[in-house]
Design a protein around this nucleic acid. Structure first.
Length: 954
RNA sequence: GCCCGGAUGGCGCAACUGGCUGACGCGGUGGACUCAAAAUCCACUGUCCGCGAGGACAUGCGGGUUCGAAUCCCGCUCCGGGCACCA
């Protein structure tokens, strides 16, 4: 890279030029001053951070948030702060315009990466995490971000995770009342069960005996089965190589762990689950209240996956077989049934012998159904989910030898076991309608099963299933009805005859919340001798993560090994003697040894920023209502702006919404949603270079020659990708700050495009923004003397005013719309105008000051410095920000194009307020236009005032 | 396969709801300053034809609507992202 910074030691450089050295000096000085003066403090209405609230009490308020980072050991690269700078510009702009703005930054520091990093460096995660956070704080501070430092939180801080645990106790201490459609305290459920106004929910009382006859232990089990946090035996991703279960996102497409590439096995284990499914409808419906992109909303809708349809019972020898279908209208076309291999009725429905005349394709070549089904089920069990889904074109399955009765037709239809039906969705069994379903069609054709069409396909189409709308055929009382009407009619019939019910099905599963890791929040839970979980009292919080020398998970290469949470080895920790206040007195209990997943801390941090020092509550209700409360009847509340990467489209954002709604239901907060408006920032991409062996080479050392890219003389291939240390294309912000200063980096990152757009990093283009700052500097400061060179008591020329005021309007527009690239372009134009209009200095003070004010959100250090040198006390943090004067927004005269038959043939300068008739006359008077119109018949004239004139000639 | 985005000079992008395509910046070319270079400043810079005035062609491709389309409609291509046997 060319050496673009000037060394101030060099003799012939003007002594007061804006150089990197000067920029760095100014930036460090202002950062210290901002810190010392608490410039970025945003006062709360009440509590420890309420100093100075009186001064801002009448101002409108805005809460701006970034998705907080995980403090990685390699530090930030220039891609990370893109969103942070974007929100900072926005927040500073609003502050200058008289708003009380809350903007801060925290650290999401629990989780497997931190633990792995600690293992790799053989240091305790607490030590590495704290060092990483310190480094990241230093890097971010250097960028001049106007964060309220008092509100910064770390999820690994005991004072923070005490409240994470407290929220878990809220989840454990409540249940979802489907009648009230909200969560309520479990004590309310107990009271209603006691006084007989409520029965235990379906599936929560295995004995089936009335509540009043249950023992204390049995009652505890019933209550536990209602809770929003509950223990359940579920299939999980067990990774013996890492010694922990993993979330689905932590498993690669080929069934191995993302970290370490170890095999992952599905197996059932008893784990903590959070009942997010109870909130499925509200999570879905409330999306309509949010100012989020359709892309993200669609992803959340798909993830929740609500389908309406019916449950239908089919009579079999083993009792009713229930299926879920979204197409009850096609019941007359159900010609066979399929069970998932794991379905509980598989054994019961496996007949002792094949019926007479069974086709060979159906038996899998087995002598008996038991043999055929057994072999098929075993084979399916050995295949991973991913493997089973890899080749979806080929359908396999085996006949059970049993039949079920189609309730609509009374026909006996064969029951198969096939792995294209998944146990995890619906009831794990389907009615197969090959005429209207591609998968059923494929299976029917593979095994020679009959097809009955129940929706008439359009003319002649007889190839494949028909999924569209059309009149019902072959369907008895439904014939002639369209799909929607037929569905409704069939559901009515099913209900009336006791064969089924209308129902809603979701793809969303309850949230697996246990990890066998050390570096996470311990659960505030203990177990009694009965194996049932009990909550620790609030007074026992925080349950502090015990210090351990050996915190590594117990790993193994044995698929059947048992998970062994590291906390089980913490001396004297796994048991605790405590009085739970439940009447049992002081007893010894076993602690829960799992920890929470790293999503936990990020599920509610938006609330803790509001009141980080509150030891009485997770957030004082008044502070929450002030910053996040609903502002009108149809407002869901929440942070005003949340900026982050699109990669958190589903998980983090869904989990956080879920917790927020639980806290809302229980009356702890007034907002129904955590993030009113979400904005996904683009990515900073970088070229990565790969040599002939497929290894990354250091991007900074690649040279371009005749369109080829050479590293060390060898040609390498180039592609655009993510920036990252491992790809050897990372550029650190520190490096750019040293070379140009933070203000230049901020301007450059904002200039390369609107915030939502990804853009490649180009280190050579930064100099443009550096030059801009130099020019602005020169407008105010004489490079030779260091003296202010603006002209006092001089009115700006009309020409300058006509540049200045549209610039102000456009700059505001860009900043409000998170498109400061356009603001910077307009500031550049103004600067260029001033530079050429006043080559020897003497820019009117009022214009120079407006320029500096507009610069302040973007390059706050340089702006505050220039503001001070212009003779003002203090910083520009609270403005003023210039306001455009309408008078100068519209020009007296404008140049408009004149079109003849759609082509621009001339340009004329006309009064801005010329009406259509005047415009036409002026256009006709133009020499060139007159020549073109001469002798031609003008058939039509369109004249749009101040825009254009168009002649149609024939 | 389905669902979202996107495509404008050599590059990043701009053009508010149909009205002068390419603002602003990088890069490039030429110049000023300098012994020289760097830095800085100034000018030019979509493509093609023409000595020139000027003209033609240009917003991924093909149609359409319109006096007028980067913008609206229909049909494609390519790129990026998400989901994927969800009954």
């Amino acid at each position: 890279m060319a050496e673009t910074t000037a060394d101030p030691a060099e003799k012939d450089l003007p002594p007061h030029r804006y150089t990197a050295a000067l920029a760095n000096e100014i930036e460090a000085r202002w950062q210290d001053r901002w810190d010392a003066e608490g410039t970025f403090h945003a006062p709360n209405p009440v509590g420890p951070l309420s100093d100075g609230f009186d001064e801002v009490a009448d101002l409108p308020k805005t809460y701006v948030m970034d998705m907080f980072p995980y403090p990685s050991g390699v530090g930030l690269h220039v891609g990370h702060p893109l969103g942070y700078i974007g929100t900072d510009v926005y927040a500073r702009y609003l502050r200058m315009n008289g708003r009380n703005v809350l903007h801060t930054m925290g650290y999401d520091a629990f989780g497997l990466p931190a633990e792995q990093y600690a293992l790799a460096t053989n240091t305790h995660p607490r030590v590495t995490t704290e060092a990483n956070i310190a480094n990241m704080r230093r890097q971010l501070r250097r960028l001049g971000l106007a964060h309220d430092p008092r509100r910064s939180i770390e999820t690994t801080d005991e004072r923070y995770y005490r409240w994470t645990q407290w929220i878990f106790l809220q989840l454990f201490g409540s249940w979802y009342d489907t009648d009230a459609d909200r969560a309520r305290p479990i004590a309310a459920l107990e009271a209603e069960l006691d006084d007989g106004t409520r029965e235990p929910a379906e599936g929560t009382n295995p004995s089936g005996r009335p509540w009043g006859e249950l023992s204390t232990d049995e009652r505890r089990k019933v209550l536990n089965a209602h809770r929003l946090a509950y223990l359940d035996e579920v299939p999980v991703n067990w990774c013996p190589g890492l010694g922990t279960v993993l979330s689905n996102e932590e498993v690669t497409a080929d069934g191995r762990s993302e970290r370490g590439n170890f095999p992952v096995y599905r197996r059932p284990m008893k784990q903590w689950m959070l009942r997010i499914t109870a909130y499925a409808d509200r999570l879905l419906d409330d999306l309509d209240l949010l100012d989020w992109s359709d892309a993200i909303k669609t992803q959340q809708r798909n993830w929740i996956g609500r389908s309406t349809g019916a449950r239908v019972d089919f009579a079999t020898a083993a009792g009713p077989l229930t299926v879920f279908t979204t197409r009850p209208d096609t019941l007359f076309g159900a010609t066979y049934m399929v069970l998932a291999p794991e379905h509980p009725l598989v054994d019961a429905l496996t007949a002792p012998a094949w019926p007479d005349g069974v086709p060979g394709d159906w038996t899998g070549g087995a002598a008996t159904p038991a043999e055929g089904v057994g072999a098929y089920v075993d084979a399916a069990a050995r295949r991973s989910d991913l493997d089973r889904q890899a080749d979806t074109k080929v359908k396999t399955g085996v006949f059970t030898g049993s039949y079920a009765t189609n309730p609509a037709t009374g026909t006996e239809i064969p029951v198969f076991v096939a792995d294209y039906v998944l146990m995890g969705y619906g009831t794990g069994a389907i009615m197969a309608v090959p005429g209207q379903d591609q998968r059923d069609w494929d299976f029917a054709h593979a095994l020679g099963l009959p097809v009955i069409r129940t929706v008439a396909p359009p003319d002649g189409s007889d190839d494949g299933p028909f999924l569209g709308d059309g009149p019902a055929i072959n369907s008895g009382f439904l014939d002639g009805l369209g799909v929607d009407d037929a569905k409704a009619a069939m559901i009515d019939w099913l209900v009336e005859h006791g064969h089924g019910t209308a129902t809603v099905q979701y793809k969303l599963r309850d949230w697996l919340f246990s990890r066998q890791r050390y570096w996470g929040e311990p659960f505030p839970i203990v177990f009694g001798d009965d194996g049932e979980p009990r909550a620790l009292p609030e007074s026992a919080l925080p349950v502090v993560l015990p210090p351990m020398d050996d915190f590594s998970p117990r790993t193994s290469d044995d698929e059947d090994s048992e998970p062994e949470p590291p906390l089980g080895r913490a001396d004297g920790w796994s048991e605790v003697t405590v009085d739970l206040g439940d009447g049992d007195g002081e007893r010894t209990y076993r602690r829960e040894l799992n920890t929470m997943p790293n999503w936990a801390g990020s599920c509610w941090y938006e609330l803790r920023y509001l009141d980080p020092d509150d030891d009485e509550a997770l957030v004082d209700p008044e502070n929450e209502r002030y910053w996040m409360g609903p502002r009108s009847d149809d407002d869901c509340g929440g942070a005003d702006l949340y900026v982050g990467g699109v990669e958190h489209a589903v998980l983090h954002l869904l989990y956080a919404r879920f917790w927020h709604k639980v806290l809302f239901d229980l009356g702890h907060i007034s907002s129904r949603e955590p993030f009113r408006r979400l904005f996904n920032q683009g990515l900073i991409q970088a070229y990565e270079y790969v040599d002939e062996r497929g290894f990354y080479v250091e991007a900074s050392q690649v040279v371009e020659q005749d369109g080829r890219h050479l590293f060390d003389g060898r040609e390498v291939s180039r592609q655009l990708g993510r920036m990252g240390k491992s790809r050897k294309n990372a550029v650190a912000p520190d490096e750019i700050c040293e070379r140009y200063g933070a203000d230049t980096l901020r301007l450059y990152e904002m200039f390369t495009g609107p915030l939502d757009q990804s853009r490649p990093w180009d280190s050579t283009a930064i100099v443009g923004m550096f030059r801009l700052l130099q020019r602005i500097w020169r407008v105010v400061i004489d490079e030779d003397t260091g003296q202010v060179r603006v002209a006092d008591d001089v009115e700006p020329s009309e020409e300058t005013l006509r540049v200045l005021h549209p610039t102000i309007a456009a700059v505001r527009d860009g900043m409000e719309g998170l498109r400061s690239n356009t603001s910077i372009a307009r500031i550049t134009e103004l600067t260029n105008h001033l530079t050429s209009a006043h080559p020897d200095g003497g820019v009117p003070r009022s214009v120079a000051e407006a320029l500096v004010q507009m610069l302040a959100p973007l390059a706050p250090h340089a702006a505050d410095e220039l503001w001070a040198r212009l003779g003002h006390e203090g910083t520009l943090i609270r403005g003023p920000f210039p306001v455009a004067d309408e008078r100068w927004l519209v020009a007296d005269t404008v140049e408009v194009p004149v079109q003849v038959n759609g082509k621009v043939r001339a340009r004329i300068t006309v009064p801005a307020d010329a009406d259509a008739a005047a415009l036409e006359a002026l256009a006709r008077a133009d020499e060139k236009v007159a020549a073109l119109l001469d002798g031609a018949e003008v058939r039509k004239v369109i004249a749009v005032p101040a825009k254009m004139v168009s002649f149609v000639v024939g």
